[in-house]
Design a protein around this nucleic acid. Sequence first.
RNA 1: GCCGGCGUAGCUCAGUGGUAGAGCAGCUGUUUCGUAAACAGCAGGUCACCGGUUCGAAUCCGGUCGCCGGCUCCA
Length: 612
Amino acid sequence: MIPDNSIPWSGKHAMEAYEQSHLYRLRHSAAHLMAQALTELYPGVKLAIGPPIENGFYYDVDPPEPIREEDLPRIEKRMKELAKLDMRIERKVAADRDEARRIILEETTLGQGEETALYKLQLLDAIPEGEEVSFFDQQRFTNGKLRRFIDLCRGPHIETTKDIKHFKLMSIAGASWRGDVKNKQLTRIYGTAFETQEELDAYLHMLEEAKKRDHRLLGRELSLFMFSPRVGPGLALWLPKGAVLRETMTDFLRKEQLKRGYDPVITPQIASIKLYEKSGHILTFKEKLFPFMEDEEKETYILKPMNCPFHIEIYQSQMRSYRDLPIRYAEFGTVHRYEQSGEVTGILRARGFTQDDAHLFVTPDQLQDEFIGVVELMQTVLRKLGLTDFRARVGTKDPASSKYVGHDDNWQAATEAITKACDAMGLDYFVSPGDAAFYGPKLDLIIKDALGRDWQMGTVQVDYNLPERFDLEYIGEDSKPHRPIMIHRAPFGSLERMIGLLTEQYAGAFPFWLSPVQIAILPIADRHVEAAEALSQRLKDTLFDSRPLRVQVDARRETLGKKIRDNQGQKVPYMLILGDRDIEEGTVGVRSREQGDLGAMTVDAFLGSLPA
RNA sequence: GCCGGCGUAGCUCAGUGGUAGAGCAGCUGUUUCGUAAACAGCAGGUCACCGGUUCGAAUCCGGUCGCCGGCUCCA
């Protein structure tokens, strides 16, 4: 998390408070100021939208010539000049639509040609009839020249440009007009603004600090995973330390699932395309698939992008009775999705990843309880991982969209099951219309990474569609066939994404149970190495969380200070120092990652002090 | 995929048209050391790749690949 002292990001109320704040208005006005600078520096530039956002503001523009990063300083400079003019920012309301149109065409274009109003006119058309249309106007006559900027805008703004003092333009990106890639791509310029220089500096400093927690950096420094161009983009190689961490997490969840009546299943990496034709994924998922494979008999196979159809095949392999339900098939299933080249981000967004997947086949009567059971498991997982900074989102159907499948009463039942389960669990969630899967509503956990980006982690989805497509049945008490409901769920989401996020949350200093190396033994001199190896073996024979303790002896011929420094850098939770005194007295010198030197104690005392 | 940026040793980075450098890591030797970097030496690069300009290219130009920020999409 970026510890942003200006806006606590989590929680709906915090966001609402931000939108009411002076800072929010300041940033909005900074966006306008930037637009004014752009109209002066790039005559004919077409302006689109320029809102304040969580950590600053942006403006989307369509410039007559490309804007590059090296242009930002002179845009900033022009903004500073303009700000000093002390232009009053005045709100004006158009009397009617015709006047609004006239203002856009005659005034906001500032004599640069009506075509510069292209996007503003479209925005005007999107404002519902009868709603007030307002403009914000800032101007100053200076040195025989009128400097003016007027923009179609809902506001609110601050009163004068001279209060826009502490800002910085951050970056340039392409952004589609109205978020649709089929539309023209505009140039988006990001900036940030604060009330004081200290806050701006603090924010920039925080960004620098956040970069140090980037999982891609720590993944390399701690030897967790790697990528190789010879393997391919987005295809991670797990190094021994990352792999053991991952196994530890998998072990933990596997046990929790066994306790809750899940049955493990294992399915192949590829399948005939027919399977995905049947599931319908071939239509909705086509552009996400790796290129197809064809065998000598001209049968087409695809690398699996998801596990559900396989689990359905297993369900369908025999007659099911209502007495068999619920059936819970669990698989740590590795899937491959051909993510667009620009969207691959370390292990947070990879092309191959492993879902902690399971599919529950339930009767309508069981839906509610099973959903609660899944939410309970997710809470257990979050607690164990020590994650508290997350948001729970209930994705429901967007009533205006036609992309969904299934009957309305099913949707309503499923949505109710989800919200009731969340209420019953006391989960603090928000409802987000339009964020449902196309086949059903879902509950997602959203977590931010070090750079403040949202990632969807764990998910629970209610599905009426696949049972329908595969014609799934169970025989009910009435001896008649009935259709089961499926729940798709993944508490971690994917091992890759969760480990990436955990790495950033903990800045690489994983809790003891997860640390790849839990204990480093540091013999002081060569003559202590033998005792160190013996101690190492003794610890490895000790179970922690029913796994052998992970111990490493640092037998390098380095000074103790050097060994401590290196193992601290590797974020090893405990170092056990072994020298003449210890061997004589039957103790070890214990040093903790967090608290430093804890003094000498017996190995038993040390083991007894380990976190439960 | 699109917009913008970056690519020099395993890592972090110097090097603006004239014989490729530093620190750390690695290896060798010396040191055997009690709580955050012992000392010395050695080795290590097709300057991402391909093409062009030039007497001469890490450096200038074009293309490709990879990575980073964003858009779109997602676990």
